[in-house]
Simulated scan of single mutants.
Amino acid sequence: MHIDLSGKTAVVSGSTAGIGLAIATGIAASGADTIVNGRNQRAVDEAVATVRAKASGAKVRGIAADLGTRAGCDAFLKDVPDADILINNLGMYGPSDIFATSDDEWERYFQINVMSGVRLTRAYLKDMMERRWGRVVFVSSESGLNIPSDMLAYGFTKTAQLSIARGIAKFAAASGVTVNSVLPGPTMTDGVREMLRETAQKQSKSIEQAADEFVVSSRGTSIIRRITMPEEVANMVVYICSPQASATTGAALRVDGGIVDTIA
């Protein structure tokens, strides 16, 4: 299958590292004019260079903006007023049980993980529908279904993304615009590498070994029995953004290695 996104403009929020960077690389390699985003200009510049190095001939540029705020979204939209493909990947995570999470922290999770995607989708959706073509993807998580008690605010926002994506898909019915969610499992991002570094050193293991053991111990229902790589998530996202995925919408597509223990 050859995926050709030439002539399309794609925005990937929170794409200077990890899953977002892998998605931006895959989208750019498929021919789309790709916008990389992050809060820090240096990180954005480095990400753009990485995409260009991995995707020969990629049309990519970067915009530094804090999309977890209304002002940041407004500034970003002035630079990129239109898009054919929107990947709502921006997100934060961390330990946060019911006692440890303040009101301000709940609000921070909500603004970054949920409202960034709501604002960008609201800005781009109308023109997509008028053109009769568009792709919107929310990068959620298996934690949106398997709510972790020690990452409660994170799990809540990931569940919210599933509801929002499904509702927008129904709103855009018969328009040629598809709206889907992707649910990664534990994925080998820079943050996960850093989290596991000390454990790996203490046990004289590689970070990769520690990561796979973490998946087995903390996500016992995993079928692949290993951590997911960012490129594996990106492959699913690139496919859903393709013309070939025109009949897939309103879906929650799992790239979790089988962790969510349901058939449907």
Rank of each mutant, 00 (worst) to 15 (best):
I27Y: 02
D97C: 06
T121S: 10
E46P: 02
F76L: 15
I27F: 01
T9S: 04
D82L: 00
L162R: 15
A169T: 05
A174N: 14
I207G: 05
Q209M: 10
D104Q: 15
S246L: 01
G68C: 10
I224N: 10
A32W: 01
S163E: 09
V11H: 00
D127P: 00
R70D: 14
G14K: 04
D66P: 03
V179H: 00
S218I: 01
N235H: 10
S102C: 14
I112T: 15
V139P: 09
G62Q: 04
L86C: 01
T121F: 01
V51N: 03
G20N: 07
D82I: 01
E231Y: 03
S149R: 15
I240W: 05
I223N: 07
I3W: 02
E208R: 14
R226D: 11
V139M: 09
T189P: 10
T159M: 12
I224F: 10
P148T: 06
S163W: 00
L152Q: 03
V255R: 06
S181P: 05
A71H: 03
P230Y: 10
V12Y: 02
E198M: 12
T101P: 08
E232N: 07
S140D: 15
P95E: 10
N37S: 09
V182F: 04
A245G: 11
G20A: 12
G91S: 12
T221R: 15
A251G: 14
Q203R: 15
I168V: 15
A100P: 00
A55W: 03
